[in-house]
């Protein structure tokens, strides 16, 4: 019980939700597997030098598009850069965009959706209209317009370039979470156990946090884990349209969009960053599944 994620405070409460969940998680092969992959990916993003000695920016046009070999496991890209090094170094930008955007939308969306759904009435109307304003603009389109309005130039530090992509996607992305949250909260609110808690005189904050949230969080987790991959993919799409992340930033998205014209001649240019992207998405979704199973009280 002492290694509980909730920390010391939770130890006082026997069998808290978080404690139970953590205990379950540690036993889940799905969780352990995906967490291990994510740890590796995060390490790759944080300290790429651990995985390769090659410089991703050292390129030689003479090697342009050469297939994988003993010297370069993943082959070379269009500029004759080592694909292995590019793929390792690409993890940082891609994972940052995915994770940060997901965090932004999950937090903003959940808060807005929960308040709207739980309070109903005027609050709901106001928040729902506010949500609609952003919801009504398709995400990719909105991101294009935002990024076209605030373009990154070469002087923009790379964290700002990444930040812009995160905000452009996040500004419109949170609405789906809000709506999902709202509709589940409305559903959960009417369920017997919430009614019972209210009947027993629980305050609205307590009801929200202890009863509604844990029960409404599952769809948001499912959505967030899938959408995380989608954001990484959208980052690639924006690069493809010429307005997302830009060189000198190295990302899987840029690599994939660069490779697109060469699918037929040099499939390795697409294959390796593509495979890493897929594995990342896979890992996060598996993690999400595991977490949801653990947190969902109805499964016990």
């Amino acid at each position: 019980m002492s290694r509980r994620r909730g920390g010391g405070h939770a130890a006082a409460v026997p069998r808290s939700l978080a404690g139970d969940a953590w205990r379950d998680l540690r036993r889940s092969p799905l969780f352990v597997g995906s967490a291990a992959i994510i740890l590796v990916l995060v390490a790759m993003a944080a300290v790429p030098g651990l995985f390769t000695n090659a410089d991703p920016r050292a390129c030689d046009l003479a090697y342009s598009r050469q297939p994988p070999s003993g010297d370069a496991w993943f082959g070379y890209d269009l500029q004759g850069c080592d694909m292995y090094a590019r793929t390792i170094y690409g993890a940082r930008a891609s994972i940052l965009v995915g994770v940060l955007t997901t965090v932004v939308i999950a937090v903003v969306g959940s808060v807005v959706g929960m308040f709207a759904g739980y309070h109903g009435g005027r609050v709901d109307a106001l928040l729902s209209r506010f949500t609609d304003m952003f919801f009504a603009v398709p995400m990719l389109l909105g991101a294009i317009i935002v990024l076209a309005t605030f373009p990154s130039t070469i002087d923009t530090p790379s964290w700002q370039t990444i930040g812009k992509v995160v905000l452009a996607l996040g500004v419109l992305g949170w609405t789906t979470v809000a709506r999902l949250m709202r509709s589940t909260v409305i559903q959960v609110k009417q369920s017997d156990y919430v009614q019972a808690a209210r009947g027993l005189g629980a305050g609205s904050r307590r009801v929200l946090l202890r009863h509604v949230l844990p029960n409404a969080v599952a769809p948001v987790v499912v959505y967030s884990t899938i959408i995380l991959g989608v954001f990484v993919v959208l980052e690639a799409t924006l690069s493809f349209l010429g307005i997302g992340l830009q060189a000198p930033v190295i990302s899987w998205g840029i690599a994939i969009s660069d490779a697109r014209a060469y699918i037929r001649q040099s499939p390795h240019m697409l294959l390796f960053p593509g495979a890493f992207l897929s594995v990342t998405v896979l890992a996060f979704i598996m993690l999400g599944d595991a977490v949801r199973d653990a947190f969902d009280p109805r499964l016990r």
Binding site: V230, V233, F240, G253, I256, S257, R260, V281
Partner: peptide, 18 residues
């Protein structure tokens, strides 16, 4: 579904078109 989610639309589109 996972594989589909992880491939950008422009890649799926180009490959199917090809």
């Amino acid at each position: 579904t996972l594989v589909v989610v992880s491939i950008p639309v422009f890649v799926i589109g180009s490959v199917l078109q090809l």
